[in-house]
Design a protein around this nucleic acid. Structure first.
Lengths: 130, 130
DNA sequence: GCGACAATAAGACTTAATCCTAATATTATC
DNA sequence: GATAATATTAGGATTAAGTCTTATTGTCGC
């Protein structure tokens, strides 16, 4: 199944890369809509999956709606349970875990995902006062 | 807000504890239904959240539907991307990560969640043949 | 340029999960 | 045990993320 290079996919990739935060699929859809008002939601969702699958962007699973990330290398994330913000975690990916879990379980491990949950600085002060 | 101890919540807790696998909310709902045919979905979802919040069970976020786990202590999970099965990972929870990320970011970290993704033994052989 | 077929638009559809309200059950107090 | 206060429930409507379907369009090898 040779992959065709469509304008839509290019627009979607550019939309993810032009954002430093971690947008949801729907936010990307709205961004891309401003450049091409005829693009459909299905196209955006499908292409985000394709791009994540092929490693051109990263898929982050968090509550309420999945996010996407312009970074390509495996890394961890921080999630604020109060405001829902997502940040990259300052911690290297622990490749050796995949090897040891693979050896111990019989699974063929592709990767692991780690998400730190807590309160961001802003929400800590709001939680204290409010 | 003192918590009342309802029959429904007790049934739901027992339902989770009586399963060694990692059932989804809907599977728990169906299990509990067999013992109390009048219990409602909302009640099951709400109580699973309450029990997870208070640490009596563990909440596991995986694609398509969240799962619940009778174990109380923090631990990691294995997820088969082909059949969707979930297992506990044979690896201790790395408490020190929470401390170091907290120190480095200003977040107040409550915990982290790690999910290993790959193919279980059964799906590896199926993928090879099929 | 032409043809094969990958990809799209549009919107219906699926499904996990939440929300709403009146009714009910639990707990503390008597 | 009765009573009052209120947390919780049943039932079903509702929401929202995401997927699927079909006719149509766009891409790319030739």
């Amino acid at each position: 199944m040779p992959r065709k290079n469509t304008k839509q996919r290019q627009l979607i990739l550019e939309a993810v890369r032009s954002r430093a935060d971690h947008p949801s699929a729907d936010e990307i859809y709205l961004d891309v809509r401003e450049r091409d008002s005829r693009i459909s939601r299905g196209t955006v969702y499908r292409n985000l999956s394709i791009l994540a699958e092929s490693g051109e962007i990263t898929h982050v699973k968090v509550p309420s709606a999945d996010r996407y990330d312009l970074r390509r290398e495996k890394h961890y994330h921080l999630f604020c349970t109060r405001c829902g913000a997502v940040y990259d975690a300052p911690m290297p990916y622990q490749e050796e875990y995949d090897l040891s879990v693979e050896a111990a379980t019989g699974f063929r491990i592709q990767r692991h995902r780690t998400i730190f949950e807590g309160l961001c600085a802003g929400c800590q002060s709001q939680a204290a006062s409010g």
